[in-house]
Amino acid sequence: MQRSNTYIIIFSLVLTIILGGLLSLASVGLRPAQKIAEELSAKRQILSAVMEVDPNANVLPIFDERISSVVIDSEGNLIESDEKGNPVDAANVDLEKQFKLAPEERMFPVFMFHEEGDPENITAYIFAFYGNGLWDNIWGYVALETDMNTIAGAVFDHAGETPGLGARITEQQIEDRYKGKNIFNDQGELVSVDMLKSENNPPNALDEHNINGLSGATITAKGVNKMLENYFRYYLPYIEKIKGKDKKIARSLN
């Protein structure tokens, strides 16, 4: 159908306004639900480093009851507010944005898992990690027991690793391999925990600082290793501080 230019312009304008209006309505209406979905997904991930989390459960009350958090810099000092003076909340730290900064300028969130309603009685420290995988970014949370040496649990996620190969880092079975491993050697030096090259290493090749790797996804595994080692280094001053505190308490008890 041939129509005049005026008709075409009016038709386009009306259509644009109607569609734009409807979309804005939908977007504004759904934004709260989207925010909640994002928050839930992030908090579920943090919690799953220390406990079994039902993927459909509402974890927000558990999170509020059992997690307290701090934000630190690479020297291990607490950060209270960002450059604009707004207070920072560990749960809102955008890890990806921080990853793009130089390590000295980054903010690092640390979550403390404690007994219900008792923030003094900490059972694990959960640290956030971020790094490069094969295709895209990978990140995760690793929990340390209060000796600041033994890994209590780990959870990883990725933006675009190969499904079935590198993407397996999100599998429970692989994350569980980290449980009970130590990040410090007997001399007290930080050595982190490495994934080895193959999946079927003989048991005597494994010690407390390494685990079986991912067959077919060596580069992703290397990315995880590098991420863990880098970030444990950034957290080291803070870890030492916590350890020091414990020693002081231990000494005062003696």
Binding site: M1, Q2, R3, Y7, I8, F11, S12, L15
Partner: peptide, 11 residues
Amino acid sequence: NLIPTRVRIIV
């Protein structure tokens, strides 16, 4: 019957 032919793809 309302869509102008010339802009139908974009519509």
